[in-house]
Design a protein around this nucleic acid. Structure first.
Length: 901
RNA sequence: GGGGUCGUAGCUCAGCUGGUCAGAGCGCCACGUUGACAUCGUGGAGGUCGUAGGUUCGAGCCCUAUCGACCCCACCA
């Protein structure tokens, strides 16, 4: 089959991927006695579609996976998707709203049916998109965080934590989203600066009648105040210890308490305490045994009589325990939103003259990371994980180096989070997620935490039982991902063989959410950290450096890019030259240049294949040309460098090296040089070069395959005597028999001469097509190399005829000249040469060489340098000096000659 | 308040444990239809590596300070 002149990715990608997948090439196999290489894919949310972040994420993973597969490791890349509890539920509710439906109107069961349908639709879509990227993961092992196995793992973990006393239920302060109507974890709160005010309020002291001034940013919470705090050391208020204030508007008597939370240096030193609606106040409340009074409903309105009645009933029935908040009937404010209540309360207080002043203030307000609604801190009954005990071994795992972050600096992020860990609120008031495996007996009040669904109360046998309404935080199941996906809690063969996995690839933005929790649960449940390396990458930003987001509308759809430029080009543009952990800007310019690179590879391959015909010339028994030896040596260097970069996870540099080798050395130099032999008469030499062209091309394609899987495999199949797919071929290794340092050095010298001639011609404005005579006077030791360079010079530097001059032999006629490392060059240009101009040009070069000499002499004249610098470096410097001195002498002589003409 | 990142050619960025590191891509200028490739080739211009000190024989690369852009965590009655 003939190769097209221009590489067309659309023509091959789809078929190639299908073939890979159907052939089972992605499937992992356990090979006893061989150490596997395993990556568990961070599961994308089923909410949306693939974005550039995913594209980068899976490109990095796929590159690592393909590299290891070619190295011969039993390789597993396990894919999957995440149910993304709150994110998905929000989407589904939005979609339902368009049909005029609500969760409540639908009911839990019907809602979940919809959710599963959603999963089917969108989960499938994202997986299709990943395939377009060329990911070589083992689809036969694909998992979902809510599939049977993962759910079992979740339940097991919950029960174990409970049994160890690390999972508890308690009334605690949570971040409440009135819009999503659920609690969210601290990590899910986004702080945003907002314009607001400081309201300075006056509370009358009952005993003394004086007015206590205090400031608040949330006056609407005042009805829930159950104390006012002052600092015990504060002399201003020493006389108020043990006194009370009358809470304005409702004339409720509340105590003045002394607490360290009241900071004498801030404001008036007086703080109102609303234990039910502020985290700090909650703490104060605990210390002073203050009642908790709720004034907000779950959906962000002021509580009223009905709410109070409902709450009272709970207490009466004994279902609400001591320590839970009571509810206030806010009277005229009942039913208002918190913002409406703020206005109303402030204006009523103003009417009473109880607002001393209002000052403007910018402050950070917590918002929900999903819907961006302002978070209301609220006391509510939730399930928490006691994190401190499980965190200690997880910190140790990183400290001891069992898990390393790449780049290392992200270790600090991890440590900072872990060392200041707080209890993790894991219950969510949602329907989509893993239901909390806890049942309550309606008759005896027994609480049951169970691995299997019960039919009756385990204590009293009553069948009047109900399950906890809440589900678990989505990160709870994510935390188990590295082993739940391998079959845990069952001791499966996969689990035994592939756990612990090797590398986790993810963005720095979820180190706290996810990475820390995987390490924690991995160490806790499996006794072993889930991966030895965490490879952190940055965010993909838009061309202007902004985060890609829906609201900005600056997101780029990876699929559109693939349609236009091909998956290989997209992948390459996302990794090449990108340094680990740093954000990158995405631009179509980059994709375009990657696309051009693909085309370059395609055409270089075409050239090779046109010359090979149908024969696969072997490397054995050949006599290689100087150029052959040079490219083989350079290939060896490149294999070493690229492999080293893969081992260091520095994929950006690995890709860059391959690019440079392919384009600058293989295409620009070797292919051009090879034309000399390919068009020559010497059949042996021709066969040798054919062998080298084929060998280097194959090696290059292999090195490139992890980044550009499609084009490399497509081309590989055209090459005579290759079998199967390149993805299952072997990674190139260095071969001492194919390294020729001396020959390579000579070739570099010749290349330098070629550059010098091109340079001369360009400066003299000699048209490329116009051939020129060349006289070459080799320097000492270069005669042999230069004598063999004639054909190269003819082809590469448009020389018509080359004449070798002996040592000291003068060039005839008017010439322009140059001095390179290997030789002096003269090109006769007849009367075209302006002698003064030529002198000026040479003088400029001479001065530059003189500067180099000066620098080298300075260095070598420095005792410190001679004494402390490595000997090799000193030697190198001396050589360089000698070469330059020679060059300077030649230039001076030449300038003299010209002046005498 | 604690921690971190970035500031290198017009633009986007690479530069490994300090010693050919002053680089690449894009852009720009000049020339070019040499049968792999114009998604190309050849040549060229452009930077005292934010600023000021310091360590060192030697510093984009280490230290200190400073300016500028940004991120994370904690907190702000």
């Amino acid at each position: 089959m003939e190769m097209e002149k221009v590489y067309n990715p659309q023509a091959i990608e789809g078929d190639l991927y299908r073939e890979w997948e159907e052939s089972g090439a992605f499937t992992a196999h356990r090979v006893e006695g061989k150490k596997p290489f395993t990556i568990v894919m961070p599961p994308p949310n089923i909410t949306g579609q693939l974005h550039m972040g995913h594209a980068m994420d899976c490109t990095l993973q796929d590159a690592l996976i393909r590299y290891h597969r070619m190295k011969g490791d039993p390789t597993l890349w396990l894919p999957g998707t995440d149910h993304a509890a709150i994110a998905t539920e929000v989407k589904i509710v939005e979609a339902m709203a368009k049909e005029g439906l609500t969760k409540e109107s639908l009911g839990r069961e019907k809602f979940l049916e919809r959710a599963w349908q959603w999963k089917k639709d969108y989960g499938g879509r994202i997986v299709h998109q990943q395939r377009r990227m060329g990911v070589s993961c083992d689809w036969s092992r694909e998992r979902f965080t809510m599939d049977e196995g993962c759910s079992k793992a979740v339940r097991e973990t919950f029960c174990r934590l409970y049994e160890k006393g690390l999972m508890y239920r308690g009334a605690r302060m949570v971040n409440w989203c009135p819009c999503c109507q659920t609690s969210i974890s601290d990590a899910e709160v986004e702080y945003k600066e907002q314009d607001s005010h400081f309201w300075h309020l006056l509370y009358p002291v009952k005993e003394t009648g004086e007015m206590l001034e205090l400031a608040t940013t949330r006056p609407e919470t005042m009805l829930g105040d159950t104390a006012v705090a002052i600092n015990a050391e504060d002399p201003r208020y020493a006389h108020l210890h043990g006194c009370h204030v009358l809470l304005p508007l409702i004339d409720k008597e509340i105590p003045i308490v002394c607490d360290e939370h009241a900071d004498m240096t801030k404001g008036t030193g007086v703080v109102k305490i609303t234990p039910a609606h502020d985290p700090n106040d909650f703490e104060v409340g605990q210390r002073h045994n203050l009642p908790l009074v709720r004034v907000f409903t779950d959906d962000g309105h002021m509580t009223g009589a009905a709410d109070k009645a409902e709450n009272d009933e709970l207490f009466a029935s004994g279902k609400a325990a001591v320590g839970e908040p009571t509810v206030l009937d806010c009277g005229k404010y009942a039913g208002m939103t918190t913002l409406e209540a703020r206005k109303a309360i402030v204006s009523d207080l103003e009417a009473l003259g109880l607002v001393k002043k209002i000052e403007p203030l910018k402050h950070e307000v917590g918002t929900c990371y999903r819907c961006h609604t302002t978070i209301e801190p609220m006391v509510s009954k939730q399930w928490f994980v006691d994190m401190k005990p499980v965190t200690i071994p997880a910190i140790e795992a990183v400290k001891s180096g069992k898990t390393k972050f790449v780049p290392e600096r992200f270790t600090k992020n991890y440590m900072n989070w872990m060392e200041n860990i707080r209890d993790w609120c894991v219950s969510r008031q949602l329907w989509w997620g893993h239901r909390i495996p806890v049942w309550y007996c309606d008759d005896c009040g027994e609480m049951m935490v169970l691995r299997e669904d019960p039919t009756c109360c385990t204590k009293c046998g009553s069948t009047h039982i109900h399950q906890d309404e809440d589900v678990l935080d989505t990160w709870f199941s994510s935390a188990l991902w590295p082993f739940s996906t391998l079959g845990w809690p069952d001791q499966t063969e996969d689990l035994k063989y592939f756990y612990p996995t090797d590398v986790l690839v993810t963005g720095y933005d979820i180190i706290t959410f996810w990475v820390s929790r995987m390490i924690t649960t991995g160490v806790e449940e499996m006794g072993e950290t889930p991966f030895h390396t965490v490879l952190i990458h940055g965010l993909v930003r838009d061309a202007l450096g902004r985060k890609m987001s829906k609201s900005l509308g600056n997101g780029v759809d990876p699929l559109e890019i693939i349609d236009q430029y091909g998956a290989d080009a997209l992948r390459t543009s996302l990794v090449m030259g990108v340094s680990p952990g740093n954000d990158m800007r995405f631009s179509t310019d980059k994709v375009e240049s990657a696309r051009n690179f693909a085309n370059k590879i395609w055409n270089a391959s075409r050239f090779v294949l046109m010359n090979l015909g149908d024969t696969a010339e072997p490397m054995e028994g050949k006599t290689f040309s100087a150029a052959d030896k040079w490219i083989l040596t350079r290939l060896d260097d490149t294999i070493r460098e690229v492999t080293a970069h893969f081992e260091d996870y520095d994929l950006g540099l690995a890709a860059q090296k391959i690019y440079d080798f392919a384009w600058n050395e293989f295409c620009d130099w070797y292919i051009e040089l090879s034309k000399v032999t390919m068009n020559g008469e010497d059949q042996d030499a021709r066969r040798a070069t054919c062998a080298v062209l084929r060998h280097v091309l194959i090696s290059l394609l292999k090195l490139l395959h992890p980044f550009m899987p499609f084009i490399t495999d497509a081309v590989y199949r055209y090459i005579p005597d290759t079998e199967g797919t390149i993805m299952l071929s072997s990674w190139p290794v260095q071969d001492a028999a194919l390294v020729f340092p001396e020959a390579a050095r000579e070739m570099e010298g010749v290349m330098d001469v070629i550059r010098a001639v091109r340079n001369l011609r360009a400066e003299m404005n000699v048209a490329v097509g116009k051939r020129a005579h060349l006289m070459v006077r080799p320097k000492e030791g270069w005669t042999h190399a230069m004598a063999g360079a004639e054909e190269y010079l003819k082809r590469m530097a448009w020389v018509s005829e080359m004449k070798l001059l002996g040592d000291g032999e003068a060039a005839e006629g008017k010439t322009v000249s140059a001095v390179s490392e290997a030789a002096e060059l003269f090109i006769p240009l007849g009367d075209l040469v302006d002698i003064d101009k030529e002198i000026a040009r040479l003088t400029k070069e001479r001065d530059s060489v003189a500067r180099d000499i000066q620098r080298a002499e300075g260095k070598l004249g420095n005792q410190g340098f001679l004494a402390k610098a490595p000997a090799q470096l000193v030697e190198q410097e001396k050589e360089k000096l000698a070469v330059n001195r020679d060059k300077l002498a030649k230039l001076d002589a030449r300038i003299d000659d010209l002046k005498n003409m």
